[in-house]
Amino acid sequence: HHHHHGSGALAALHAEGPLAGLPVTRSDARVLIFNEWEERKKSDPWLRLDMSDKAIFRRYPHLR
């Protein structure tokens, strides 16, 4: 159930192989992290948004 927010940013994801479903670039990863943060913020208003490279690598090590 993907609803768009204002920016309408869509992340490019790997379609197949071992990385299927994972973001292709760091900016794609940022979109995913932001979208998930927006969702989680509803139940956790104090949740901090962390889109640093460090956060991205921790989450998606293949982007190193």
Rank of each mutant, 00 (worst) to 15 (best):
H1V: 12
H1E: 11
H1I: 12
H1Q: 12
H1D: 11
H1Y: 07
H2N: 10
H2E: 10
H2G: 10
H3E: 08
H4N: 08
H4V: 09
G6I: 14
G6M: 15
A9L: 13
A9T: 15
L10S: 15
L10T: 15
L10F: 09
L13W: 01
L13E: 04
A15S: 14
A15G: 12
E16A: 11
E16D: 14
G17A: 03
G17E: 04
G17H: 03
G17M: 02
G17Q: 03
P18N: 07
L19C: 08
L19D: 04
A20D: 04
A20Y: 08
A20R: 11
A20T: 09
L22D: 02
P23K: 00
V24A: 05
V24Q: 07
T25S: 12
R26Y: 09
R26G: 05
R26N: 09
R26D: 06
S27G: 12
D28G: 05
D28N: 01
A29E: 01
R30Y: 08
R30T: 04
V31L: 13
V31H: 11
V31G: 04
L32Q: 05
L32N: 02
L32W: 02
I33H: 01
I33N: 01
F34D: 01
F34Q: 06
F34Y: 14
F34W: 12
N35H: 13
E36G: 02
E36N: 04
E36C: 05
W37R: 01
W37K: 01
W37G: 01
W37F: 08
W37H: 05
E38W: 15
E39N: 08
E39R: 09
E39M: 10
R40P: 01
R40W: 06
K41D: 05
K42H: 09
K42C: 09
S43D: 13
S43G: 10
D44Q: 07
D44C: 07
P45S: 07
P45C: 07
W46I: 08
L47K: 05
L47F: 15
L47A: 15
R48P: 13
R48N: 08
R48T: 13
L49V: 06
D50G: 01
D50I: 04
D50K: 03
D50S: 04
D50V: 04
M51L: 14
M51F: 08
S52N: 03
S52F: 01
S52E: 02
S52A: 03
S52G: 05
D53W: 09
K54N: 13
K54S: 12
K54H: 10
I56L: 08
I56V: 10
R58C: 11
R58Y: 10
R59E: 08
R59M: 08
Y60P: 00
Y60S: 00
P61A: 03
P61E: 04
P61W: 05
P61L: 01
H62K: 00
L63T: 01
L63G: 00
L63C: 01
L63R: 00
R64M: 12
R64V: 09
